[in-house]
Deep mutational scan, measured.
Amino acid sequence: TSIVNVSSSLNVRSSASTSSKVIGSLSGNTKVTIVGEEGAFYKIEYKGSHGYVAKEYI
């Protein structure tokens, strides 16, 4: 489990790309479970499925 480190919110994306669809967002200090990594993104558990967040904010 890791913590989201942002002051406002962090986009959760459908794939490991800044141009991919935003499927949701997480607020600062939210706990997330990392299940993998791809480039500059972590794959996380998100709403019963998976999403991707930028590593620099975790």
Results as ranks from 00 to 15, higher is better:
Lys21Phe: 08
Glu45His: 07
Ala40Lys: 10
Val6Trp: 06
Val35Thr: 06
Leu26Gln: 02
Ser8Trp: 13
Ser7His: 12
Thr1Cys: 15
Leu26Tyr: 03
Ile58Val: 10
Thr18Phe: 15
His50Arg: 04
Lys43Tyr: 05
Gly39Arg: 04
Ser25Ile: 15
Ser49Lys: 10
Ser19Leu: 10
Ser49Asn: 09
Ser2Val: 15
Glu45Gln: 09
Gly24Asp: 03
Ser2Lys: 08
Gly48Tyr: 04
Leu26Cys: 03
Val32His: 02
Ser19Asp: 14
Val4Phe: 06
Asn29Trp: 13
Gly36Lys: 04
Tyr42Lys: 01
Leu10Gln: 05
Asn11Arg: 11
Ser25Met: 14
Asn11Phe: 13
Ile23Cys: 05
Gly36Ser: 07
Val35Gly: 01
Ser19Val: 08
Lys55Ser: 05
Ala54Ile: 10
Val4Asp: 06
Ser19Lys: 10
Glu37Tyr: 05
Ala40Phe: 07
Val6Asp: 07
Thr33Lys: 11
Ile44Gln: 00
Gly28Ala: 15
Glu37Asn: 05
Lys55Ala: 04
Thr1Lys: 06
His50Ala: 06
Thr30Ile: 08
Tyr42Asp: 01
Ser19Met: 09
Ile3Arg: 06
Gly48Lys: 06
Ile44Pro: 00
Tyr57Asp: 15
Tyr57Lys: 08
Thr18Arg: 10
Leu26Glu: 01
Glu56His: 10
Ser20Asn: 02
Val35Cys: 07
Val35Pro: 00
Ser14Pro: 04
Ser17Leu: 06
Leu26Thr: 03
Ser20Asp: 03
Ile58Leu: 11
Thr33Pro: 03
Val4Ser: 08
Gly48Leu: 05
Ser49Tyr: 08
Glu38Arg: 05
Tyr52Arg: 00
Glu45Trp: 09
Ala54Glu: 15
Ala54Lys: 13
Ser20Phe: 06
Ser7Met: 11
Thr18Asn: 14
Ile23Ser: 02
Val6Leu: 11
Glu37Ile: 08
Tyr52Gly: 00
Ser25Lys: 14
Gly51Met: 02
Tyr46Asn: 01
Ser27Asp: 14
Arg13Phe: 15
Ala16Val: 04
Ala40Tyr: 07
Gly39Asn: 06
Val6Ala: 10
Ser49Leu: 10
Ile34Val: 09
Val4His: 08
Glu37Asp: 06
Ile44Gly: 00
Val12Leu: 03
Glu56Trp: 08
Ile34Tyr: 02
Ser2Met: 15
Ile23Lys: 03
Gly39Asp: 06
Leu26Arg: 00
Ile44Ala: 00
Val32Ile: 12
Tyr57His: 14
Val22Gly: 02
Tyr46Cys: 04
Ser8Phe: 14
Gly48His: 06
Ser7Arg: 06
Val6Pro: 09
Val53Tyr: 02
Asn11Met: 14
Leu26Ser: 02
Ser9Val: 14
Ser9Tyr: 12
Ser14Cys: 13
Ser25Asp: 06
Leu26Pro: 00
Ser27Trp: 08
Lys55Trp: 03
Tyr52Phe: 10
Lys43Gly: 01
Val35Met: 08
Gly28Gln: 13
Gly24Ala: 05
Arg13Asp: 02
Ser19Arg: 09
Lys31Thr: 13
Glu38Gly: 03
Ser25Thr: 15
Glu56Tyr: 09
Lys55Asn: 02
Glu45Leu: 13
Ala16Gly: 05
Lys55Val: 04
Ala54Leu: 15
Ala40Met: 11
Val4Tyr: 06
Thr30Gln: 12
Ser49Met: 12
Phe41Arg: 00
Gly36Gln: 04
Asn29Lys: 09
Ile3Ala: 09
Tyr46Val: 02
Val12Arg: 00
Ser8Gly: 15
Ile44Leu: 02
Lys31Glu: 11
Lys55Met: 07
Ala40Asn: 13
Thr30Tyr: 07
Ser7Asn: 12
Asn11Leu: 15
Lys55Cys: 03
Glu38Leu: 06
Thr18Met: 15
Ser19Ala: 12
Thr30Val: 10
Ser17Gln: 07
Ile23Val: 07
Ser9Ile: 13
Glu38Asp: 09
Arg13Pro: 02
Gly51Asp: 00
Tyr57Cys: 15
Val12Ile: 08
Ile23Asp: 01
Ile3Pro: 06
Tyr52Ile: 01
Leu10Arg: 05
Ser7Cys: 15
Lys47Ile: 05
Gly51Pro: 00
Gly48Trp: 04
Val53Glu: 00
Lys21Val: 10
Ile34Arg: 01
Ile34Met: 02
Asn29Pro: 10
Leu26Phe: 05
Val32Pro: 04
Glu45Ser: 07
Lys31Asp: 07
Ser20Cys: 05
Lys47Glu: 11
Phe41Pro: 00
Val6Phe: 06
Lys47Met: 14
Gly24Gln: 02
Ala40Ile: 09
Thr33Gln: 08
Ser15Leu: 07
Glu37Ser: 08
Val12His: 02
Ser7Phe: 09
Ile23Phe: 03
Tyr46Arg: 00
Ala54Met: 14
Val6Arg: 04
Leu10His: 06
Gly24Leu: 05
Glu56Leu: 08
Gly39Phe: 04
Tyr42Ile: 04
Ser27Arg: 13
Phe41Glu: 01
Ile34Gly: 00
Ala40Arg: 08
Val4Leu: 10
Lys47Val: 05
Tyr42Arg: 00
Ala16Gln: 02
Ile58Ser: 04
Glu45Tyr: 07
Ser8Val: 14
Tyr42Asn: 01
Asn5Ala: 10
Thr18Ser: 13
Ser14Lys: 13
Ser15His: 14
Val53Gln: 00
Ser25Pro: 04
Leu10Trp: 08
Gly48Glu: 07
Ala54Asp: 10
Ser27Val: 12
Val53Arg: 00
Arg13Cys: 11
Val53Asp: 01
Val32Gly: 01
Ser49Ala: 11
Arg13Thr: 12
Ser19Ile: 08
Thr33Tyr: 09
Val6Gly: 11
Gly39Gln: 04
Val12Tyr: 01
Ala16His: 04
Tyr46Asp: 00
Ser2Thr: 14
Asn5Tyr: 09
Lys43Arg: 09
Asn29Asp: 09
Lys43Asn: 02
Ser7Leu: 11
Lys31Ile: 14
Ser2Tyr: 11
Val12Gly: 00
Glu38Tyr: 08
Lys21Gly: 07
Ala16Lys: 02
Glu56Phe: 09
His50Gln: 05
Leu26Lys: 01
Gly36Ala: 09
Ser7Ile: 12
Ala40Leu: 11
Glu37Leu: 06
Gly24Pro: 01
Val22Arg: 04
Thr33Gly: 05
Gly24Trp: 05
Val22Asp: 03
Ser49Glu: 09
Thr30Trp: 07
Ser27Leu: 12
